[in-house]
């Protein structure tokens, strides 16, 4: 009998209106966009979980070092990029009616080599993310390095994108070509 009955998603109380056979219920609930999301801050041990609407209030309250800037075309100026060790530079760009998390991450390998990764994540669903494109550009000294892609949706892990090199990737030597006084200027342009 259960095969003929449609069950509500476990996140129905959060707004999901989907009903489906019990055989498909678990698969749907794993990707349901009404489920709780983890804090998107990279490299932190924040255990917060909440709904999509609660993410931005959480970031401004609990991660107050994250600055928000308005505009589709902005300059993300990462300071002190030559510090030894692994670091994140994080900010929020608000434009086109939505918000994006901009992340520059520096990692060190076992040989002391440094890699930089820059990526943009929409604080929204994968369906919404498909409507946008972002461009990250390093410019200066008669050189230009550009990466263009669709922003990651909120449920995709930034760490996974970095692991897959699905982001702007460059090493410390390249960073030095574009840096001025230990500061790296990244032009971020978001389009619909």
């Amino acid at each position: 009998v259960a095969n003929f009955v449609l069950f509500p998603c476990r996140y129905a109380c959060m707004g999901c209106e989907i009903t489906l056979p019990h055989t498909e219920k678990a698969d749907h609930e794993e990707v349901c966009e009404f489920r709780l999301y983890s804090c998107p801050c990279p490299g932190t041990v924040c255990k917060w979980q909440g709904t999509m609407d609660a993410i931005m209030p959480h970031l401004t309250k609990m991660h107050e070092y994250i600055t928000t800037i308005e505009g589709e075309d902005i300059i993300f100026l990462a300071t002190s990029i030559n510090l030894v060790g692994a670091y994140d530079w994080v900010m929020i760009q608000s434009c086109l009616g939505v918000r994006f998390m901009l992340v520059l991450q520096k990692q060190e390998d076992h040989n002391g080599g440094q890699q930089f990764f820059a990526v943009v994540q929409l604080l929204g669903t994968s369906k919404e993310a498909e409507n946008f494109a972002y461009r990250l550009e390093l410019k200066g000294n008669r050189r230009r390095l550009t990466w263009e892609a669709t922003p990651l949706p909120i449920h995709e892990d930034i760490a996974k994108a970095i692991k897959n090199r699905d982001c702007l990737t460059f090493d410390a030597n390249t960073a030095l070509l574009f840096a001025e006084n230990d500061d790296l200027s990244i032009n971020v342009v978001i389009t619909k």
Partner: peptide
């Protein structure tokens, strides 16, 4: 034609916490 200068925001580095945990 005028060229709009994009707004610039200075972003300070944050210590990558996962690395700190690994060091403990």
């Amino acid at each position: 034609r005028t060229h709009r200068v994009p707004k610039e925001v200075r972003v300070e580095p944050q210590k990558f916490a996962e690395e700190l945990i690994h060091r403990l």
